[in-house]
Design a protein around this nucleic acid. Structure first.
Lengths: 231, 231
DNA sequence: AAGAATGTTGTACCAGGTACAACATCTTTT
DNA sequence: AAAAGATGTTGTACCTGGTACAACATTCTT
């Protein structure tokens, strides 16, 4: 481990242990954590014990480990810094029900977009982002809308700014289409984007038109609640 | 720092930095983080940089720091290990709307209960737990129900088991009343408790009766969805 | 412009963190 | 039931990572 780096290696190891858990892992054995992080078992055990002290990890009775409740507490604090949950959650439910598609809100974090809130369609074929997922800004309508309304140059972005929305069909994932509009806060500051997503087969011109109406109405409500007035 | 402890002190310092953020902190300056954690500024900076590498923290342009999106991602993974979000969220909305009170689901984590999901009443006077909050098991109806159905002894718990629910008025917080019932999974394993909460003035006998009906119906649905059959 | 406050870097020191080895416990195979 | 294998835990030597002090750079306030 190189010395004098600008960080703390032990902390980065600890985070890599938390990141070792995926969607399908209820828990992980010590050995599996060691394998996934390429750390010695004794190192994993000591770090895990420290994380467990503050409920970032939980040790099960069978000595396996799982993610702990402090994470959902801290994750909720992160979401609450956007001051949007109270109005967003019912709004996403409403527009998902009206459109029949999954609805989500994305915010810009550095050079990616993060899914801040989402509500999944009840249809059996549906797109399902996960809250906290990071995705590229230059792939998919929600990201391109964020880029357009934070000053990206180029004809594509000029067009998006002119139209006030964007549609992509399979740009990031071949099986996903989306339509997105901007959401503002505090006057004309971009808060993020609001999007409906689903399979390309359900995004013909007529469906897009209908979904756009739903999105625009919802975005106006959300922007207003956040103190935004688009120019 | 004492040597040969069973953990890793640097990791515990990093977690204490994340825990330094409260509900009202959009961001914290380096100096404020140092004050709250009683660590040297240079230590805080190095740890913060490591946390930022994996989006556990974000450095703002003005060199202040805020919690990062990876937390909501990991928090969502924690919640998803309970395999309950898809049915719980609409159910909580429904019972909150029907009863006019805030609804929440709690699970047992060691010797505390953790709020796993919640939906707040729309009334202006309402109780609002936060997802991820830890509370004592022996204060408040949701905790007592968990204790009762995981084998706690004593007349109080015998009574709860016999009745199948519990009501408390101001036991944990003088301004909060709650009524809670158990939720099962995988046969007769306790999943947690389902509760409605609000100000004591709205929890007279008639209201409690009505709320209990709503809760029981919802708990049957939720238990069934989780594969639970109460004995 | 000067002073104060905050953020950042350099670096010496030492003890913390790591991984190896051994041991304990549990599970599987024979 | 015994042996072998796998997993989790502990001891500990070593060395370098992590810490905090000091100095510096930048920003803010007076």
């Amino acid at each position: 481990m190189s010395g004098n780096s600008s960080g703390v290696a032990a902390v980065e190891r600890a985070v890599s242990m938390l990141e070792a858990f995926t969607d399908v892992d209820y828990s992980l054995t010590l050995g599996e954590l060691a394998r996934r992080t390429e750390l010695d078992k004794s190192t994993v055990l000591r770090i895990a014990r420290s994380l467990a002290k503050s409920s970032m990890l939980v040790r099960n009775d069978d000595a396996s480990w799982r993610l702990g409740p402090k994470l959902v507490r801290l994750g909720g604090l992160y979401q609450s810094t956007f001051k949007s949950a109270a109005i967003v959650e019912p709004l996403l439910t409403q527009i998902s029900d009206e459109s029949g598609e999954s609805a989500a809100v994305y915010v810009k974090e550095g050079d990616v977009r993060v899914c801040l809130h989402r509500h999944d369609s009840t249809q059996s074929i549906r797109h399902s982002a996960r809250v906290g997922d990071s995705m590229p800004l230059d792939r998919g309508a929600p990201g391109r809308v964020i880029l357009a309304f934070t000053g990206a140059s180029g004809k594509l972005y000029d067009d998006i700014r002119a139209k006030g929305f964007h549609v992509t069909i399979g740009e990031r994932d071949p099986q996903v289409a989306s339509v997105a509009v901007p959401v503002y806060r505090d006057g004309q500051t971009l808060f993020g984007s609001l999007a409906l997503t689903g399979p390309p087969s359900r995004f013909n011109d007529e469906a897009v038109s209908k979904n756009l109406e739903i999105l625009r109405a919802a975005a106006r409500k959300l922007s207003a609640a956040l103190g935004g007035h688009p120019g």
